[in-house]
Design a protein around this nucleic acid. Structure first.
Lengths: 166, 166
DNA sequence: CCGGAATACTTCGTACACGAAACTTTCGCC
DNA sequence: GGCGAAAGTTTCGTGTACGAAGTATTCCGG
């Protein structure tokens, strides 16, 4: 049995470590991107497009967990550099597909780095047991956070409903 | 024994989940901050100052894993709002200490939210075993990433040395 | 089939976020 | 004691990052 103090210390350490892993991984992606004249997010988008093929701007946003307005800017700059083109869908003229140009594709293939590279590299050195444990516990965490968020959003929505009705 | 495919899938899931936990936690901090007219980083700084007392700008930067130039801006805006004051150290006149004003302190104490709040909340619901497993594996990851980064930085430094010498 | 809700994207304003360069002050060494 | 390197902070330029408001298009209930 762990004491409350131990538990608190452990939580701090876990948060510390996850923040470290995340920020460090992003920093190194950025550094790799720099070497070919790109920014971190731009490299991420480039790699995604090479992997997924043409995708709409919204699904791109969803994939990299950013708002549409953010991605609009990123694509603007990549289009300016001739790495991608925008192509309006004929089926639904609200939708914009992002397509790699030849230049963009070549650049994408010339870089060996994956998004969150260092992170993945190190993860692959874990034993099967460690990987399984990590996945098991993180899975629980993700599930519980999602549940809490849903709950929280529901309360907020209810607040707004009440406010509107008053 | 896990197959390579399983291993790759697991790595993807782990990365996915960590990115989710991190971004979601930041999003919710931002949302909490919004309710009292602050931004996410500003709330984080406010809480840190209330906990740590006066600290120099550099140590603040280090604590929140940001560059000094970033923190300068954050403090500028908080100072403009009358939440903190800058105080130049008398011992070392290069150093600037950041101090909470009364207004800042009151605001800090009026908010129950900790940085990465949701994350901590959910972590505290884990069993001792799960916490231990998580900490154990994350600890390994952190250690290995640090080692890789050190190695990498050493190579870069060597590159620069060679370039300078040529 | 038409008018309003919903969807996809862009625009705008503000706040990070970072690296490079500038500035001030301190330190180390001869 | 003085001077060059180093440390602490700020300034500047560029690129995210987000929410709110705006525009164009599609969907849907009557």
């Amino acid at each position: 049995m762990l004491s409350d103090d131990d538990q608190t210390t452990h939580i701090d350490e876990i948060v510390e470590t996850i923040v470290y892993l995340y920020t460090e991984s992003r920093r190194l992606t950025k550094q790799a991107a720099r070497e070919i004249g790109l920014t971190g997010p731009q490299l991420t988008v480039l790699k995604l497009l090479d992997t997924l093929g043409d995708v709409s701007l919204s699904s791109l946003s969803e994939r990299i967990r950013a708002q549409n307005s953010t991605v609009t800017g990123i694509i603007d700059r990549m289009e300016r550099e001739g790495l991608v083109v925008r192509e309006r869908s004929t089926a639904d003229r609200r939708v914009v597909y992002i397509r790699l140009t030849e230049k963009g594709r070549e650049l994408a293939r010339s870089v060996p780095v994956e998004p969150m590279e260092i992170f993945r590299t190190v993860l692959s050195t874990l034993s099967s047991d460690d990987t399984r444990d990590l996945l098991r516990v993180l899975g629980k965490l993700g599930k519980r956070v999602r549940a809490l968020v849903r709950e929280h959003e529901a309360v907020s929505a209810d607040d707004r409903r009440k406010a509107a009705g008053s």
